[in-house]
Design a protein around this nucleic acid. Structure first.
Length: 830
DNA sequence: CAGTGAGCGAGCTTCCGCTTGACTT
């Protein structure tokens, strides 16, 4: 056994560091935190100085045992977790949980993984910083109290299973408030005038009128004035300008840029980055720092000089601007600057790598030098001025490699202007006045939400992606299907000496994939903002972070901070629990003209619904679910009433009744006893008998067997894990190599035989009379299958040696604790 | 799985941050 044991947080990091240290050092990892509050209870003794109860997670027990043994046989244990709050707490938990001897334990930190940084760290060990640990405990306990005291209030007042938290609830609030701004937005139209001019040499350029007009008449009148007018250059101004490169990537800027340029979701970016990191190709991907190690700056410089020449190099350091940044790591950069792109890896990994390489290299390159020209064009028949501007690139600098993307969809690229002189006459080619509308604010994308959260100092690099998925799995937010609507606009065009009017159409408000709040999201948000305004305050995190900082520097006692917070917080929770009304988001829309009863809309047991009548009346109320694209907040009386016309019976087809309705899974056509979901473009109230029959036929075709193999039918479908074919009860994934819509018979046979072969290779034992299968898994684990039940065995079990009796025992044990896992699977189905 | 929406009550849900691993329908 080695004399020295170094414990870091990540196994990939351990692997790298071990190479730098001699053979006297064994490097291993803790896989993040090893101890935490228990998940099933509060785990904080609020009566006794908020003493936390720490437990080792079930899945970490084996790891802790292994670490203990390794520590025991080493002379010195080096706790090398990250240099921030969480890292310090990890070191402390390791020291406590592994019961490390103080005299043989040393705490070291480094924020770049280079040989010199690590050797320097080893020479300068310190002890655990308990102030920093206490700051972490304060953060942890505060989050626990907020989350675990407010969530149960939501179960009681709105719906079970809901959640609230310091981070997620503010994220939802941002999205809800943005949506309301959009709903309340009234677009204003104005006419903008644009023109194209031609120089004597025949060079064309575009110009815009400074003024806009707010009516068609005024715009038309202005165009008339330009008939047979003379135009000349009245002013010309040229000045140098420069552009600087953006800082190297942090987690947040990587997510934004991958979203803008590669259309990756936040979680996809992190998945790809994780794999690049594990392959040793990039530095750590969860960071809030824009800092590069001096080695990296030097390597970038060498690569730039080699590839582009000396004048393109300009080494720089970037100050991190994110609020509350902890800077435990470097910026995200390639580990080897000489590798410009990757071959032999998955395409999307290579694309992300290239983005990281370009951004890093560009950040160490010279500014781009530009010449910006602004020109004014005057007319002899009126006083309005046309403006034209252009840019000429004098030296490309960093632009040779990379330019950061923008979130502004309207931004126009400025082109070049022809050479012009003051007083020169130009000819009008055309002039137009186009009706333009002001725009509502943009809905958030996953990445722009991350950007906003980071600006507010809310959340950490390791939680951005999980937070976005939490607010979606809780049903507060959806990725939008908002199709947008057509809007007409007018364009007046002056070509020679007459003004012509044309009407065009544009699509507005199309927001596919953007984040849109659900009814539940809005109701929960309003409830929280009303009753827990201080927690929902956009500055709450910033305020408590100040306290955490004071605790970290030893200026404040963490239990005192908790006490101050809890003194106000807890009585408020109790008060809301007792006095707040149940929240359903109910809106009364008016009266049903037929019965005169009240029509309302609210959140019901099974989701948003409309209701005719009230429960106080003698006659029972009538209920109807809302359509998937409708919402409580915007539903009109007419829309509500039409919901009660369902189900619509369309007629009879092949002796069975055909009807349209809305159910648990959205709108559908019922045909006898079978159901067909409506297509995306179908409207429940518009579907005709012909369309319904078409849908039924499509469904029958899709369900029909596509082939048969060994006398058993083969069908196909699309599941959670992509397209598959099904044969003999087996699901066989069809990967992209095959054309799923046109599978040939040979493809099908190949897929099935391949599956049979692979299953046979996996099979260890099969007890036919008991219907129990024992199979090898892909990661050294094994699986027991009994009928439809599946049990995964831990890696430590050698499945090849199991007997039928032992297997039966395992199944029995598993069945007892089964309850929990079944619930989990039904949830993940959603 | 696609009709529900009363009221009761058992047993459950939930946070944020640090990490990787799980291999399915």
């Amino acid at each position: 056994m080695a004399k020295n044991l170094v414990i870091v947080e990540s196994p990939a990091k351990a692997k790298t560091i071990e190479k730098f240290l001699g053979k006297d050092f064994k490097v291993t990892s803790s896989f993040g935190h090893i101890a935490d509050l228990p998940s099933r209870e509060l785990g904080v003794d609020v009566e006794k100085d908020f003493k936390p109860k720490y437990v080792v997670d079930k899945e970490k027990k084996a790891l802790v045992k292994k670490l203990k043994e390794m520590a025991k046989s080493s002379d010195t244990v080096w706790l090398a977790s990250d240099e921030d709050r969480e890292g310090e707490a990890i070191a402390w938990h390791l020291a406590e949980t592994l019961k490390l001897d103080k005299d043989k334990t040393k705490r070291i930190v480094f924020n770049s993984i280079t040989k010199s940084a690590i050797l320097k760290a080893i020479e300068n060990p310190r002890t655990i910083d308990y102030n920093l640990v206490n700051a972490q405990q304060a953060r942890r306990v505060l989050d626990r109290l907020v989350g675990y005291e407010i969530s149960p209030i939501l179960w009681k007042k709105i719906k079970t299973g809901l959640s609230a938290g310091r981070v997620q609830s503010v994220a939802v609030r941002l999205i809800v408030e943005r949506e309301r701004e959009i709903q309340g937005f009234v677009p204003e139209a104005s006419y903008r005038v644009a023109a194209e001019f031609v120089t004597k040499e025949g060079k064309v350029f575009k110009a815009k009128l400074q003024n806009t007009f707010n009516s068609k008449e005024a715009a038309g009148k202005f165009l008339q004035k330009n008939i047979a007018a003379d135009f000349s250059v009245s002013d010309l101004d040229t000045r140098p300008a420069k552009k600087s490169p953006a800082a190297p990537f942090t987690t947040s800027t990587l997510q934004q840029e991958a979203s803008r340029k590669l259309y990756f979701s936040v979680s996809k970016t992190m998945r790809m980055a994780q794999r690049l990191y594990e392959a040793g190709l990039i530095t750590y991907m969860r960071t809030d720092s824009t800092n590069l190690s001096s080695e990296a700056v030097k390597a970038a410089k060498e690569e730039i000089v080699r590839s582009y020449g000396e004048k393109y190099s300009k080494p720089r350091n970037y100050a991190t601007k994110a609020k509350g940044a902890q800077e435990a790591h470097e910026a995200i950069r390639p580990t080897n600057m000489a590798v410009h792109d990757l071959k032999d890896v998955e395409r999307d990994m290579a694309r992300l790598y290239e983005l990281i390489w370009k951004r890093t290299i560009a950040s160490q390159m010279s500014e781009a030098q530009l010449e910006r020209t602004n020109v004014k064009i005057q007319a002899n028949k009126h006083d309005e001025l046309f403006l034209a501007s252009g840019e000429v690139l004098k030296f490309d600098g960093f632009l040779k490699v990379y330019l950061e993307g923008t979130d502004d969809e309207d931004e126009e690229q400025e082109g070049m202007l022809p050479a012009l002189t003051v007083g020169e006459y130009v000819d009008k080619k055309y002039m137009s006045a186009t009706q333009r509308y002001t725009r509502p604010p943009y809905r958030y994308t996953e990445a722009s939400l991350v950007k906003k959260l980071e600006e507010l100092g809310i959340g950490r690099p390791s939680t951005y992606a999980p937070t976005i998925s939490t607010i979606q799995t809780r049903g507060y937010v959806e990725r939008g299907m908002v199709e947008g609507v057509e809007r007409k606009y007018v364009q007046l065009m002056l070509l020679q000496d007459s003004v012509k009017e044309e009407v065009y159409a544009e699509k507005v408000g199309s927001d596919k994939g953007k984040l849109v709040p659900t009814d539940i999201g809005m109701i929960v948000n309003d409830f929280l903002v009303n009753h827990f305004s201080s927690i929902l305050d956009y500055n709450f995190t910033a305020k408590v972070e100040e306290d955490f900082d004071n605790i970290a520097s030893g200026g404040e006692d963490w239990t005192k901070m908790m006490k101050d917070f809890y003194e106000d917080f807890h009585p408020n929770v109790k008060n809301v629990e007792e006095h707040a009304e149940r929240e359903t988001g109910e809106r009364v829309l008016g009266e049903d003209p037929e019965s005169g009863r009240q029509v309302s809309v609210r959140l019901g047991k099974f989701g948003p619904m409309a209701q005719i009548g009230t429960s106080e009346e003698e006659e029972k109320p009538r209920f109807a679910s809302l359509l998937p694209d409708q919402s409580i907040e915007t539903l009109t009386l007419e829309e509500a009433l039409s919901l009660f016309e369902l189900p619509r019976v369309l007629g009879v087809y092949e002796g069975e009744e055909v009807a349209v309705n809305v159910g648990r899974f959205g709108p559908y056509v019922r045909f006898g006893k079978s159901f067909v979901s409506l297509g995306k473009d179908d409207e429940v109230f518009d579907v005709t008998m012909d369309r319904a029959i078409e849908l039924i036929k499509e469904k029958q075709k899709a369900d029909a067997p596509i082939a048969s193999y060994q006398g058993k039918e083969v069908t196909k479908g699309k599941g959670r894990f992509g397209p598959f074919i099904k044969w003999d009860g087996k699901f066989i994934n069809v990967n992209k190599k095959y054309d799923f819509d046109n599978l040939s018979d040979e493809d099908i046979v190949a897929l099935i035989e391949d599956k049979i072969k692979k299953d046979a290779e996996k099979l260890i034992s099969y007890w036919e009379e008991e219907d129990i299968k024992l199979e090898k898994g892909r990661w050294g684990t094994s699986t027991i299958t009994k009928g439809k039940k599946k049990i995964n065995l831990p890696k430590t079990v050698d499945a090849t040696k199991l007997t039928l009796e032992q297997v039966k025992e395992i199944i029995e044990k598993e069945t007892k604790t089964k309850k929990k896992t079944t619930k989990k699977t039904t949830k993940s189905k959603k």
